[in-house]
Simulated scan of single mutants.
Amino acid sequence: MPHFRTYDEAELAYRTAGPESAPPLICLAGGPGRDAAYLGDLGGLGGPSGTHRLVIPDSRGTGESPVSADPDRYAFPSLAQDIDALRDHLGLERCTLLAHDAGATTAQAYAASHPARLAGLVLVTPGAQLQGELPVDALEIFESRSAEPWWPEASAAVRRLAAASDWAEIRELLIRAAPMAYAHWDSPQQAHAAAEMGQLNPVPRAGFWQGVDESARLALLKGLAEVRCPVLTLTGELDAVSGVRAGEAVSESFPNAEYRRLAGVGHYPWVDDPTAFRTAVTDFLTGR
């Protein structure tokens, strides 16, 4: 895998997918602290006929990127500095970002701190912790699916997760709760979920919000109001992880944002409906 050198001389890894001649699209994984391998080629967005070449970094302590001796480097404002180093490495004056889940928080930190270096932003099923909101409607979505065969076991796992502190137990419960993240529980979804436990990294996950107090959060929110590039926020109507309202709140933080709720998809829309996901992102990026 290629690497780039970031602000503190760490060598971080990234991979690419899609036509070499196409403009780059930097894609950020979520978790937080999850290996970026779960993004795949984003449902064919990075396929041979894609309009963009995906550039997918492994954040610190995930994938092929080394762990950090300083836990502060795992906090999302620091991860945003790594993204600017990647932009510089790629020789771009301005970059376009796509970010999923917790990666959308890193992308918002980047947008707030480097608005002039951002050409466009796609936020996929984001949470709204930065906006100070919890995904209250996610539970409603989850409860609405109680007739599905996987629901009783997933429901029991979700209840136990609230009190779990041991990482081994948390991993087991996440496996049992996995169907709630998808609109369907068929072979593609099961295969995607099965890889998750080998992709989670507890130390980067624990450090993601480290050092970000209320004043820092409010300063970042203020910065988002100054972001002038076009922004697309995508949510899935069956997303029982982030919900729908979180995406709406994130979209409302930007002055030039478009919000779309995709039908028939959950937290991983490129897995549930690759065509709908590709079309929504491509149309936005190409201005169609």
Rank of each mutant, 00 (worst) to 15 (best):
L45M: 13
L86M: 12
S59Q: 15
G40P: 11
D72E: 11
R94I: 01
L92Q: 11
G91F: 14
A119Q: 12
S49G: 14
P48S: 09
A75W: 05
A75M: 00
G103E: 11
L118Y: 07
E93S: 14
C95Q: 14
P66I: 05
F76Y: 13
C95P: 04
L90Y: 13
I83A: 08
L97A: 08
P126I: 06
D82M: 13
G40W: 10
T51V: 15
A75R: 02
A99Q: 09
G120W: 01
G50C: 06
S49C: 08
V124F: 00
A111P: 07
D58W: 10
V122D: 02
D84P: 03
R94Y: 01
L130R: 08
P71F: 01
G44L: 12
A119Y: 01
G120Q: 03
A69E: 15
P126K: 06
L42C: 13
G120K: 01
L118W: 03
R53G: 00
H52M: 07
T105N: 11
P126E: 13
H52F: 09
L90S: 08
G46A: 13
G40Y: 09
S49L: 13
Y74F: 11
T105H: 15
Q81L: 13
V55K: 10
E93Q: 12
E93P: 02
Q108M: 11
G43F: 05
D58P: 06
R53L: 04
G91L: 07
S113K: 07
G43R: 06
D72S: 11
L123V: 02
V122P: 00
E93K: 14
A69I: 07
A111Y: 09
L97D: 09
S68A: 14
S65K: 11
T105Q: 14
